[in-house]
């Protein structure tokens, strides 16, 4: 189950997409199962640990509402990451309207464990400048190509690529500081696909 149809379309050409139209949409429960963890990590990285659960809920509720109208063959993961971005922006706006200092974006992403990232790596994500943090989240965690990342965060594709590279460099330093073997750096750089596969 999971992203079967969607994943097939994402990596294949038009003929598969035509068949996907005939197959229709997967049950939304399968969408949650396939992409829930990715969206949670993106939310965690972009809005911090305290607001991440709310952002996840708002993202999936909005997605559920719009799901029947989503064109068949769409890249569901990219669609969800885009919704998550909009919900994060909404949260920032709401926070900015509120006077309470706690409404500010947390400066650190916090030390809780999530997925196979070490706690100190999540802390390091929280310490990145906002644009780097978003570019890392949308590209490396959410799997969006840089052109789509740029469309969300503003600026050029090249600028989004640079911001993500700067962010990953900072995270590698943090990972190296805390740690042992260098090959785990790949986890930061990779798109976490293998880990998601294990969870199915």
């Amino acid at each position: 189950m999971g992203g079967g149809v969607v994943a097939g379309v994402a990596v294949s050409g038009a003929p598969v997409a035509v068949r996907a139209v005939a197959a229709g949409h997967e049950p939304f429960e399968a969408v949650v199962a396939a992409h829930g963890a990715t969206v949670l990590r993106v939310c965690r990285a972009v809005v911090g640990p305290d607001a991440a659960d709310d952002a996840w809920s708002e993202t999936f509720l909005a997605a559920l509402r719009a799901y029947p109208a989503l064109p068949a063959g769409s890249d569901v993961r990219a669609w969800l990451v885009t919704i998550a971005h909009r919900k994060a922006v909404d949260q920032h706006r709401a926070a900015a309207r509120r006077p309470a200092p706690t409404a500010e974006l947390p400066e650190r992403a916090g030390g809780e464990l999530l997925g196979d990232w070490r706690a100190d790596l999540w802390e390091a994500v929280g310490e990145l400048p906002a644009k780097q943090r978003r570019c890392v989240a949308y590209h490396h965690l959410g799997g969006l190509p840089y052109a789509e990342v740029a469309a969300l965060v503003g600026g050029s594709e090249a600028a989004a690529r640079r911001a993500a590279a700067d962010g990953v460099r900072a995270l590698r330093r943090a990972w190296g500081d805390g740690g042992d073997s260098g090959d785990r750096n790949d986890r930061v750089h990779g798109d976490q696909r293998s880990e998601r596969e294990e969870q199915r």
């Binding site: 829930g36 196979d116 706690a119 969870q199």
Partner: peptide
Amino acid sequence: ATGVPEGVAAERETL
């Protein structure tokens, strides 16, 4: 050593 079991378990519980 890697933090994998606790982190993945916490994520599944949250999800």
